Simulated scan of single mutants.
Amino acid sequence: MMCVPTPPPASAVIKKKKSIADEELFPGARLLSLIFIWIAAAIAVAPLLYMISLAFQSDAEVSGGSAVLIPAKWQWENIGRLFAAAPFGRFLFNSILVAGLITCSHIVFAPLVGYVFAKFDFPGKQVFFIAILSTMMIPLFVRMIPLYVWFSQIGWLDTYQGLVMPFLMSAFSIFLMRQFIAGVPDSLIEAARVDGANELRIYRSIVLPQCKPALTVLGLFTFVFQMNEFLWPLIATSSLEMRTITIGLSIFKSESFTAWNLTAMGSLMLFIPVCLLFVLTQKHIVQGIAMTGIK
């Protein structure tokens, strides 16, 4: 008895013909796309690479009138010159402390509020949630004068609490965690309740372990935003000891506007903590962004 081979599915044949036709019409499509990606990556990375090169150039190379891509000799002493010219150690410490405290507050409290809005029903739930989201429409410029007057009256200007308190929580953090926790299966929570677990135990043992990607994204976004914050620290601080690194860089650039190598070194000091945090958390970032509905 002769065996007749089973023909491939029609969809497979159509897909194969389509791929062959695409290769015939665009024989170098893959190569062109790779070239485009490399060009785009080079354009994005080029300013950062030049900032690193500029930070380690000598004064003669900076003031020579022509761009130097690679220093003839890497001036590692520029790091010491930067910290001798201005208290950048204090600036960096203030920025990391303020950004770290605000990030910790968001990571601790935003999942709690997001869990309540995602998994509980109570009167006025939608009203409260819309009211919280509406605060995202209010820019800092509107709140700035009342905050300044209030903090001036209670003596919080030029203090760490004055820098931290206005940003301890945000509607974006609550929305981000609510969107993620809404995807946690209700069956897991109901099963835990049937087993006798209280809400705190359910939150700690079931909800939080599944929120690691979202918490990583939230922590990174919050830390980067606060490290780059400029306007409120400029208004809320007056002494040099309380300045953050963004304000310190602005002051240093206005006083030493020709020392581009030291200014670039200061910018590099601002970039390093954010880069290290990204490297440590990168495996959770893509997963967290995909699972929280941020496109």
Rank of each mutant, 00 (worst) to 15 (best):
R178E: 07
R178D: 01
R178L: 00
R178S: 04
F180L: 00
F180A: 10
I181P: 02
I181R: 01
I181T: 06
A182K: 13
A182R: 13
A182W: 00
A182I: 06
G183L: 04
G183W: 01
G183P: 01
V184S: 05
V184I: 15
V184G: 04
V184M: 07
P185F: 03
P185C: 07
P185A: 07
D186K: 13
D186M: 13
D186W: 06
D186V: 09
D186G: 15
D186P: 00
S187K: 12
L188R: 09
L188N: 08
L188Y: 15
L188F: 15
L188M: 15
L188G: 09
I189S: 09
I189V: 14
I189P: 08
I189K: 11
E190G: 01
E190Y: 09
E190Q: 15
A191N: 13
A191K: 09
A191L: 10
A191D: 11
A192C: 13
A192E: 10
A192W: 08
R193L: 12
R193M: 13
R193V: 10
R193C: 07
R193S: 12
V194K: 10
V194D: 09
V194H: 08
V194N: 10
V194R: 11
D195S: 14
D195H: 09
D195M: 10
G196K: 09
G196R: 10
G196S: 11
G196C: 11
G196W: 08
A197V: 12
A197D: 14
N198L: 06
E199T: 06
L200Q: 07
L200I: 15
R201K: 14
I202R: 09
I202P: 04
I202V: 15
I202M: 07
Y203W: 13
Y203A: 00
Y203E: 00
Y203P: 01
Y203Q: 03
Y203S: 02
S205Y: 07
I206P: 05
I206E: 03
I206C: 07
I206T: 10
V207L: 06
V207T: 04
L208T: 11
L208E: 03
L208A: 05
P209F: 05
P209N: 05
Q210G: 01
Q210R: 12
Q210T: 09
Q210L: 15
C211T: 11
C211I: 02
C211V: 04
C211K: 03
C211H: 01
C211P: 02
K212N: 07
K212I: 13
K212E: 09
P213W: 00
P213R: 04
P213V: 01
A214T: 05
A214D: 02
A214L: 02
A214R: 03
L215P: 04
L215C: 09
L215F: 05
L215D: 02
T216M: 05
T216K: 00
T216R: 01
T216Y: 00
V217K: 10
V217Y: 08
L218G: 03
L218Y: 08
L218N: 03
G219K: 10
G219M: 09
G219Y: 11
G219I: 08
G219E: 07
L220T: 07
L220D: 02
L220Q: 00
L220K: 05
L220E: 02
F221Y: 14
F221V: 15
F221W: 14
T222L: 11
T222C: 13
F223M: 09
F223Q: 06
F223K: 10
F223I: 07
F223R: 08
